[in-house]
Design a protein around this nucleic acid. Structure first.
Lengths: 156, 156
DNA sequence: TGACATTAGGTGTTATAACACGCATCATTA
DNA sequence: TAATGATGCGTGTTATAACACCTAATGTCA
């Protein structure tokens, strides 16, 4: 029962602890899922992070979000949001407008083109989720979510 | 019960599917764990991937490993192993020697200095694992590992 | 109001990841 | 053994991440 990951990584020795095995399982699984996800997005010319930004901005419509609020909503840490948005602006996926009441703020919104892209991607993404996680039943998914949430509980 | 991640990401809307929620939970948890892990390694001057390399090479002693075998054992995909090893060689953590029987192969081994570093890190890493996952009991860890292994099963 | 801290955001620079390609070595087979 | 293909590894180049620093705008309080 223990040792599947061990085999995947061609390891001879057992893990030194259950904690280590759990940690590596999380990292390994994310890597597998993440790589496939990026691969899926490649034909559409955006990265996983960029897709994430689009989804967040769509959810925030019709208002936009300022840079830091957007950064805080990203699933992964992203220290250089400015240039991430620069690229997306160049691609025509987002627009930035300087706030008039507080001129420090830059409101970022999704463009029609960006909106069309995420909308189109919805079904592709759902299909990918189905492919990568469809073999788990509802109870298994719920338990997995529950345990991962528990992990983050003392990690926040 | 559902919606912890939703709150973490300041989301207003619910997830569109259990699959999506599971996927994002995996990504988010890995990011949290990974960031802390990198932070822990920072004082020692190496990255998570570099630590991983050292651990693999220590496990392969006294022989070394050729580049591709090493790459296949890495937990995450790493397309540019050559320059990763270049940097580690510059740091004095590994040595590379051209195989004499098959001159295409470059055997990579860990140096005494590298070995000392991973050995020193063992307890630091265990402490970090304890901190990040110590609040889960054995059964929970086992279930988590089991479910993540199941996820990868149709993802390989 | 002026000095100071705080907040939001951008910039400069270096390090690393990603991708495509090239070269050398070895295996295979006519 | 010469030709062809496969394998292992390195290199060139571009894109992105990471880190520290800088500027402008706002808030605060003597």
């Amino acid at each position: 029962m223990t040792g599947s990951l061990q085999a995947e990584l061609h390891q001879r020795k057992a893990f030194t602890s259950l904690h280590q095995e759990a940690h590596l399982n999380i990292v390994r699984t994310e890597a597998a899922l993440g790589d496939d996800f990026e691969q899926m997005l490649k034909p559409y010319g955006i990265s996983g992070t960029q897709f994430n930004v689009l989804r967040i901005l769509r959810g925030a419509e019709p208002e936009g979000l300022c840079r830091n609020e957007l950064r805080d909503r990203l699933v992964t840490r992203m220290p250089d949001v400015t240039r991430l948005l620069d690229r997306m602006e160049d691609l025509g996926l987002i627009v930035r407008t300087r706030d008039t009441s507080d001129r420090r703020l830059v409101s970022t919104g999704i463009t029609k083109q960006g909106r069309r892209l995420v909308d189109d991607l919805d079904e592709v993404v759902q299909a990918e989720h189905q492919r990568s996680l469809g073999h788990l039943n509802k109870k298994q998914l719920a338990t997995l979510i529950e345990l991962l949430t528990l992990v983050r509980r003392t990690n926040l």
